[in-house]
Amino acid sequence: HERALMVNRLQKLTRMLRVHPDPKWKQEQQELIKRLK
């Protein structure tokens, strides 16, 4: 369940980064990718 939330968050971040590349979001995205591996 928590994994699904993280995947959701990651997808949302990816969409937001396409619109507005924010370093903070980029960092969070990298963190999520690490944790999901």
Rank of each mutant, 00 (worst) to 15 (best):
H1L: 11
H1R: 14
H1W: 14
H1M: 12
H1K: 12
H1C: 15
E2S: 08
E2K: 09
E2N: 11
E2I: 12
E2G: 05
E2M: 11
E2C: 15
R3W: 12
R3Q: 07
R3A: 04
R3T: 08
R3S: 05
R3D: 07
A4I: 14
A4H: 14
A4D: 14
A4Y: 11
A4F: 09
A4E: 14
A4M: 14
A4P: 05
A4Q: 14
A4K: 14
L5V: 11
L5W: 15
L5N: 13
L5Q: 14
L5S: 14
L5F: 09
L5M: 14
M6R: 04
M6P: 03
M6L: 13
M6F: 01
V7P: 04
V7C: 15
V7A: 07
V7Q: 09
V7R: 12
V7F: 12
V7W: 15
V7I: 15
V7Y: 13
V7K: 10
V7S: 02
V7E: 13
N8R: 15
N8F: 08
N8E: 15
N8P: 02
N8V: 15
N8M: 12
N8C: 02
R9E: 05
R9F: 11
L10T: 01
L10W: 02
L10F: 02
L10A: 01
L10P: 00
L10C: 14
Q11Y: 09
Q11I: 15
Q11E: 11
Q11C: 15
Q11S: 10
Q11L: 14
K12N: 09
K12W: 15
K12I: 13
K12D: 11
L13Q: 00
L13T: 01
L13S: 00
T14Q: 06
T14A: 11
T14M: 06
T14F: 03
T14R: 08
T14E: 10
T14L: 08
T14Y: 07
R15E: 14
R15L: 07
R15A: 14
R15M: 08
R15Y: 06
R15T: 04
R15F: 05
R15V: 07
R15N: 11
M16A: 04
M16F: 02
M16L: 12
M16N: 02
L17P: 00
L17V: 03
L17I: 08
L17Y: 02
R18F: 05
R18P: 00
R18E: 09
R18T: 08
R18K: 10
R18N: 07
V19G: 10
V19A: 10
V19W: 10
V19H: 11
H20I: 09
H20A: 07
H20E: 04
H20D: 13
H20V: 06
H20W: 12
P21A: 11
P21Y: 15
P21R: 06
P21K: 08
P21L: 06
P21F: 15
P21H: 15
D22L: 09
D22M: 05
D22H: 09
D22K: 13
D22N: 14
P23N: 05
P23Q: 05
P23K: 05
P23H: 03
P23R: 04
P23C: 04
P23V: 05
K24Q: 11
K24V: 10
K24Y: 07
K24M: 07
K24F: 06
W25R: 05
W25M: 15
W25Y: 10
W25N: 04
W25D: 04
W25K: 05
W25L: 15
K26M: 10
K26R: 12
K26V: 10
K26S: 04
K26H: 09
K26C: 08
K26N: 03
Q27G: 04
Q27H: 13
Q27V: 06
Q27M: 11
Q27T: 06
E28Y: 04
E28S: 02
E28A: 04
E28G: 01
E28R: 03
E28V: 04
E28P: 01
E28T: 03
Q29L: 15
Q29H: 05
Q29I: 15
Q29W: 12
Q30I: 10
Q30V: 08
Q30K: 08
Q30R: 09
Q30S: 08
E31C: 11
E31N: 06
E31K: 05
E31L: 07
E31F: 06
E31W: 10
E31V: 04
E31R: 06
L32Y: 01
L32R: 01
L32D: 00
L32E: 00
L32A: 00
I33D: 01
I33E: 03
I33H: 02
I33K: 04
I33V: 05
K34L: 09
K34T: 11
K34S: 08
K34H: 09
K34N: 07
K34V: 09
K34F: 07
K34Y: 06
R35S: 06
R35V: 09
R35I: 15
R35G: 03
R35D: 02
R35E: 05
L36H: 01
L36W: 02
L36T: 01
L36N: 00
L36P: 02
L36D: 02
K37N: 11
K37I: 10
K37P: 02
K37R: 13
